[in-house]
Design a protein around this nucleic acid. Sequence first.
DNA 1: TTGAAAGCGATACCAA
DNA 2: TTGGTATCGCTTTCAA
Lengths: 358, 358
Amino acid sequence: MTSSKKAGSEPRPKKANSQRAGRLSSGRVTLSDVAKVAGVSSMTVSRAINRPETVTEQVQQIVKAAIDKTGYVPNLLAGGLASSRTRLIGAVVPTLSHMLFSGSIEAFNGRLAEEGYQVLLALSGYGQAADDNLVRTILSRCPEGILLTGTHHSKEVLAQLDNVNIPVIEGWDLSRQPLDMAVGFSHDEVGQAVARFLVAKNHDKLIVVGAQDERAIMRRDSFLRTLEELGVDDARHVDTPSPSTLEMGRESFAQLFEEGVRRAAIFCNSDWLAHGVIIEARERGLCVPEDIAVIGFGNLDFAAYSSPSLTSIHIDREAIGLHAANMFLKRLAGEEVEQTIVDVGFDIIERQSTQSVL
Amino acid sequence: MTSSKKAGSEPRPKKANSQRAGRLSSGRVTLSDVAKVAGVSSMTVSRAINRPETVTEQVQQIVKAAIDKTGYVPNLLAGGLASSRTRLIGAVVPTLSHMLFSGSIEAFNGRLAEEGYQVLLALSGYGQAADDNLVRTILSRCPEGILLTGTHHSKEVLAQLDNVNIPVIEGWDLSRQPLDMAVGFSHDEVGQAVARFLVAKNHDKLIVVGAQDERAIMRRDSFLRTLEELGVDDARHVDTPSPSTLEMGRESFAQLFEEGVRRAAIFCNSDWLAHGVIIEARERGLCVPEDIAVIGFGNLDFAAYSSPSLTSIHIDREAIGLHAANMFLKRLAGEEVEQTIVDVGFDIIERQSTQSVL
DNA sequence: TTGAAAGCGATACCAA
DNA sequence: TTGGTATCGCTTTCAA
């Protein structure tokens, strides 16, 4: 006990062993433990840690020594509670199994970590039902900002976000006016671009294959709509279950084949599906891309090498994470974010080679 | 206002503006706001939320209504601070860009989420220098458990872990006696198994290609050691920079080719490298697997389809995440964990087909 | 079953 | 520059 307060002359001040009354403290070394060792007040230790320039050089040394000696690890729960600066940023993504997300998140995390922030992740797994709870759960940790996937949110989520009043970024999707800030690309534009691309190539029959997730549907619909506008009226689509797998691609093409499809250009809403389609088409004795032209979507970079006959849509996933991080950082530093909507665009990468190298 | 409780006849309780004295509170709805609306004490609200069975049915209803009305989101910083139950589990992994990790983490997160826990991730990016700080940063959030990658930790990390006294799981690696619990597989055994496998196939020349990360090195060394034991003394290795890419695989084989290699069995310490080697070998006019046999490592499932001539090592990554989660849950529930070291093993998957389907 | 009081470990604010 | 004090929002403890 610090003897600084000998208040009261009673041999046993009744609150002397105040510890007993409460619970056992967690046992961890606390700020005041360090303070005791250093022989200063806990406020001074706090300052020495957070704003070293506000204390004497000498105090810095003493405190540093005390910290090393005690093995002190700050308790950010307490710090965050007291200061409302949690240095935590929440992020909700469907999955980590797609490079599009894991790549962005990794860049996002990296940039934020440089500035002392941590990312708290929640995986929504494509079902939008659970989204409300995920956001709730994230918000209950008092993040200073939150990154969401997509631009479609339930009323509950909107209300919750409104309540906490922190910066929000909607990522990977630019299809609607954002709540606050956004970084991504337009799925509509992807659909349009692919439609134009394929029409320009004079393909006979156009088909889109894809899963039922929100953004895949946007691409599909925009694709079909654009085709109609371009005068193609026999385009069709095949819907597959989520998540998209190579196996699903095979099945989809098998089905098309059974239905008599022998020549077509197929827009696959995921690279996995695309590979499945290619494999199945070849197994059925068709030539890719001569008979069946395939265009994929995503960032399965390996695709570029393994299947030169696949044209694919490439997204700069790192840019998404980096932009998002920087937008948060600017905002949290109190600066104006000059560009609140960042379109990272996409590229249609066409392989020239008609031969698989594998 | 629900008029259900007109309790108290005072028109204006005198402590109405008690707020003024302190700082501005965060503005968020708090437990006592809900309590006021519900006309009960905040303790009762707390109970209604955390242990509904301890309050009247009627109180439950009233509180629930008040929560909905106010849009209350609990503050887990405060809750965690008060109770030491943060419902947070930390995890340190090198990257999310490898399915081995992202797959495990996804399963880990999923299982823990079911039980109301959240995962706080830290990415170490293969450099072990930063590890100390990552662990510190995680621990500063007071997680109830922590999942680490590998079994090699700095003195500082060990000291920190020792201080906090929470369950620790070392994942993806079983090479040493764990600090506490472990789940993964033995990289040593992988190296041995591959060595035996290739020797049994009577390959002329054996080469291992791989990056310099800790576990890749373990596999490499164990591979070479085992070969020696089996009497193969002209095995060699090529080291590549991290992270392993397909491009690195190509370069590695190009180098080997320049050096005159025309027939060999190559153990690639990552599937990406393996694919690069295969591609380069074919570009150079060699046959895979007749001239150059390749065996990979990892979970690039796509490999199975795209390159039937690749034999690969498969890890059940989901099992790792699931086991880890369940071990934590058991432990946190106060139960005994009967098996503190879980070996999920690995499979050597050999492709029969000698023909690429692509 | 419910409520009042005392922390949890840190920071903001104001005095010294 | 340093220290004391009052919170931050919640839960534990204990009494009613």
